[in-house]
Design a protein around this nucleic acid. Structure first.
Length: 941
RNA sequence: GCGGGGGUCGCCCAGCCUGGUCAACGGCGCGAGGCUUAGGACCUCGUCCCUCAGGGGUUCGUGGGUUCGAAUCCCACCCCCCGCACCA
């Protein structure tokens, strides 16, 4: 860490500048960012999101707000525990990620088998990184989400939510890992990401007194069934299921148990024992042979399927496997298979009568285990679903579309009593631990009832009343609120807070982080050891956060002084509500909306969040950041490579709105060069400056500063960090450069005033450099505590601005001409328009359309310029024209004459400015009379 | 599929809400010149096409439409990104 950064960090620290306490009468600003999850060190994505709040915090502080920017660490949940576990089991990829991507030393990794150690290590590293980056955080309020006091807070929150009826119990199917004994979300899966439970139809085929139970998603094909498939190698069972006798795979039986069916096994048998027997189909009454299907997965649904070879590539192929000898079969079984012909039951344009045959030909599968059959099935099914119509072969389903027939067939089957349902995964799902998952019905789970219309309405109100930056994000919140249903808010495993009334469960991590911002007001006291976990009873917290109850009695009950208790309350009411919460857009559909829901439920309107800031995701060198591809940059890595200020500036300049931010080394290097050259530039400029009276250029620069300050202020208030930082850092710099270039002899007093404002404008972005520069310019005080630049110090001067515009327009026009004109030219004649022409322009621009006639009458001499003048009025634009009309004192001729030397230098020719209508005019080509206001005539010779 | 956001002159991106000031801001890259012992950095200019007078032509995903006038408004279509839940 460079000395400059170390020095100023220490100064900020010693002066406690970022440790705000309630100050009566001072306006406050409470800004937050979601705490990062400590299964990894913070990375540039975290930095991007958090830096937006950091810039905003520093900006608001300079605007005079008492700003609180706290920080904490997210430890709760399954992920950290899961990673520890995987490491313990010797998973090489986790270890590699720790060492190679996160940069953890080997001897530390060894200790990561303890999840709390893992999290504490990353917390330690990340905290230091944030400090080194110069974040203006009040570290006195730091906490981890497994702290006993935090748990007290969450317990209290859930007790109250439950009392309000927002926590309900329910029974739902989940993707389940029997090894972890826990639901398996996408993040926990090795295979089958995105797969969710679906309901399969179980169709019972009579097999003696038993039912051979086949599973299908396509009951509408029942009329095309020619046979049944079982896997000859797999275990099957005869069992009593919900009072009936079923034959299903052994695996199916355990899963049926998990789905709350009543199950008693009778005897097991091998799949092969079923081969060659016949089972009777419902609806059709056909007797269908049971054949060996090697593709049948006993772990999926019932391990029995029925065969529709006309429409299912798998079935047709499996049949051919037997017929062509690829599947071993006894003679009797083979004869049965040989006799089977596909039975088409729907017509499909673009296919022959047996679509599965076409499909097989197209995809060229070699046997029924060929993986291409997956694709073939999906494609054929999609076509059939969208375009297929059931034929007469389907009896009562004839004429229906596949979608309609699906429903109708299920109804018909249900009527015969030969339909049951079973939850199943449409694709194989494997847990990170390597265990195959299935669907389990979880009973008596706890849910947050986001379905409640009243709650939804209130949450919507929270968003409606808050600022949302950028405004496009608002719609996303509304649709999320509409769309949210019951959210399972408790889990069996992982770190976290136990559900206070049901200690078997742990509050799920997205649900324990919804109102914790309130806890920052308390954590200060906890860290100062002024409050213990035991004191944070629900009653005490009711008082602190709701103002409920009698503080005298409560303080006695929890053995805390009443004064202290009231202090906690004061701290909360001072800081709340949250004024700005910023996060990446991916959190809109969950965390940020939950945050709105929970505040709506628990707090009165005046404590609802006031502002939401949303940013895009981070990309690295134009590609998605990803640990698996190694396209990953840690915050620490970037910080050490470029230094705090360049890192911050590069982040600020990356992106605005919900656009994805692209982290590129080049940009960071560029930012470093820029940051490093500010102070030398300022020093050099001041050295070259002179003490003198103000001229029009000084007025121009001061006026331009006014506009920059306004622009930056506005952008910051709208969380347009990129725009703000670009204007503050780069555009202002260019303005100053232009002034120096244009003026030749910059005025010292002007530069001093401008630099003084500039250093304050860039301070939120590059605070270390700014402190250093401020120290050199002012010699004392801290720029982070200085006032934000005031517009009043930089008067607008429209005439000075117009003068610069006039000069630049001439230079631009002349360049155009010089570019086109061949031959060497020595002298540029600039003819400013006559007063008459100016009067005509003014009258024409201010006249309304109908009175143009009288204007032209008044200005006989300028009449033939009417069209060109109108065109010019359009070209200049309303704003400039208005300015021109009001600026009576503006002297175009004087301005351009004064700038003649400058223009000459820029253009490389002598510039002579004259005014049309003056006597002694030198006008060899007769162009002078064509001059218009802000558009002098030019003549090169 | 559903929901949200986008597609702009080599690249990144501003403009779009509130139509004309838009060949379209800014940055990067590239080219020329300056500065410098040299390089880097820095400064200036140029960077869609044509043009010996400040002009003209063709552009803002595609195709239509509204309008005197559309990057901006309307309709349809194509493409990209994000989210879609027992998980941070």
């Amino acid at each position: 860490m460079p000395d400059r950064e170390k020095y100023w960090t220490k100064v900020w620290d010693e002066k406690h500048v970022f440790e705000p306490d309630p100050l009566t009468g001072k306006k406050k600003m409470f800004v937050t960012v979601p705490y990062p999850y400590m299964n990894a060190p913070v990375h540039v994505g975290t930095a991007f999101t958090a830096s937006r709040v950091e810039f905003y915090a520093r900006f608001r502080r300079m605007q005079g707000y008492n700003v609180l920017f706290p920080w904490a660490w997210h430890w709760t949940g399954q992920t950290i525990v899961g990673m520890s576990l995987r490491l313990k089991k010797g998973d090489a990829s986790v270890r590699r990620a720790f060492v190679e991507l996160d940069g953890v030393p080997e001897k530390e990794v060894a200790k990561f088998v303890d999840p709390e150690y893992l999290a504490s290590y990353y917390t330690k590293v990340s905290r230091q990184v944030l400090k080194d980056t110069g974040f203006s955080i009040d570290w006195r309020r730091e906490f981890r989400t497994i702290d006993p006091t935090y748990k007290k807070f969450v317990e209290w929150q859930y007790l109250r939510l439950r009392e309000l009826g927002y926590v309900v119990q329910g029974t739902h199917p989940v993707v389940w890992c029997p090894y972890d004994r826990s639901p398996t979300g996408d993040a926990d899966r090795m295979e089958g990401v995105g797969v969710s439970p679906g309901e399969f139809n179980l169709i019972k085929f009579h097999l003696g007194e038993f039912a051979l139970v086949a599973a299908t998603l396509r009951p509408e094909t029942i009329y095309g069934a020619t046979n049944l498939w079982v896997n000859p190698e797999s275990e099957y069972v005869e069992a009593r299921v919900d009072g009936e006798l079923w034959v299903v795979s052994a695996s199916a039986l355990t899963r049926l148990t998990e789905q709350k069916h009543e199950v008693t096994p009778v005897r097991s048998l091998k799949g092969s024992e079923l081969l060659g027997r016949f089972a009777m189909a419902p609806l059709t009454g056909k007797s269908l042979p049971i054949l060996p299907g090697r593709f049948v997965d006993a772990e999926l649904a019932t391990g029995v399927v029925y065969s529709v070879p006309a429409h299912a590539p798998f079935d047709l192929m499996a049949l051919k496997d037997i017929q062509e000898g690829r599947t071993q079969a006894g003679r009797q079984v083979k004869e049965l298979a040989d006799a089977i012909r596909p039975v088409p039951i729907l017509s499909l344009k673009g296919y022959s009568a047996v679509p599965a045959e076409d499909s097989l030909r197209k995809h060229g599968a070699k046997d029924s285990l060929d993986s291409s059959l997956e694709r073939a099935s999906a494609e054929l099914y999609s076509d059939e679903f969208h375009r297929g119509v059931l034929t007469a072969a389907s009896g009562p389903l004839a004429g229906l579309t596949v979608g309609e027939a699906k429903q109708k067939s299920a109804e018909l089957l249900a009527k015969t009593g030969r339909l049951a349902k079973m939850w199943e995964l449409t694709e194989k799902v494997v847990c990170r631990c390597g265990t195959r998952c299935y669907v389990k019905i979880l009973e008596n789970q706890w849910f947050l009832n986001y379905s409640s219309p009243q709650w939804k309405a209130k949450a919507k109100e929270v968003i409606e009343k808050a600022d949302v930056f950028p405004p496009e994000a608002r719609e996303w919140f509304y649709s999320t609120i509409e769309w949210l249903k019951e959210w399972p808010c408790a889990r069996r495993s992982g770190m976290g807070t136990k559900v206070p009334w049901d200690k078997e469960w742990i509050v799920e991590t997205l649900s324990d982080s919804t109102i914790y911002m309130a806890y920052y007001t308390l954590s200060k006291f906890v860290n100062q050891e002024k409050v213990t976990p035991e004191q944070l009873t629900p009653d005490a917290l009711d008082y602190v956060f709701f103002g409920k109850g009698n503080p005298a009695n409560i303080s006695k009950a929890v053995r805390m002084t009443e004064k202290r208790l009231r202090e906690l309350r004061t701290e909360f009411t001072y800081w709340y509500p949250v004024d700005m919460r910023n996060s990446a857009k991916e959190l809109i559909p969950n965390h940020l909306t939950f945050f709105a829901f929970h505040h709506a439920a628990l707090f009165p309107e005046k404590q609802w969040p006031r502002g939401f800031g949303i940013n895009g995701m981070i990309q690295i060198e134009g590609k998605k950041m990803s640990k698996t591809t190694g396209n990953f940059v840690t915050w620490k890595g970037a910080l050490e490579k470029y230094g705090a200020d360049p890192f911050r500036l590069a982040l600020a300049l990356t992106a605005d709105g919900m656009d994805d931010a692209d982290w590129r080394d080049r940009n960071a290097e560029d930012a470093k060069v820029k940051v490093d050259s500010v102070i030398p530039f300022v020093k050099k400029s001041l050295r070259s400056s002179v003490k003198r009276e103000k001229d029009v250029l000084d007025d121009w620069l001061l006026s331009t500063m006014n506009r920059r300050i306004a622009q930056v202020t506005q952008a910051m208030q709208e969380m347009k960090i990129r725009r703000a930082s670009a204007a503050a850092f780069l555009d202002t710099w260019n303005d100053i450069r232009w002034y120096i270039h244009r003026s030749g002899k910059p005025r010292r007093q002007t530069l001093e005033a401008v630099f003084d404002a500039w250093v304050r404008m860039v301070a939120p972005f590059t605070p270390f450099m700014a402190e250093g520069l401020n120290h050199e310019l002012r010699g004392k005080g801290l720029v982070c505590q200085a006032d934000w630049p005031s517009l009043r110090d930089f008067p607008l001067d429209e005439e000075a601005e117009m003068a610069e515009t006039a000069v630049n327009r001439v230079v631009e026009d002349a360049r155009n001409v010089l570019k086109v004109v061949k031959g060497s030219k020595k002298r540029l004649n600039v003819y400013v328009c006559s007063d008459g022409s100016r009067g005509f322009f003014v009258d024409l621009a201010s006249a309304d359309r109908l009175k143009i006639g009288s204007v032209t009458k008044k200005h006989e001499a300028s009449k033939d310029k009417t069209n060109r003048t109108f065109k010019l009025i359009y070209e200049l634009g309303d704003e400039l024209v208005k300015k021109y009309i009001t600026a009576r004192k503006f002297d175009e001729y004087g301005t351009l004459s004064d700038a003649a030397k400058f223009m000459g230098k820029e253009l490389g020719v002598d510039v002579v400015v004259q005014k049309d209508g003056e006597k002694g005019l030198r006008d060899p080509s007769g162009r002078a009379k064509g001059a218009l206001p802000m558009k002098p005539a030019l003549y090169l010779e």
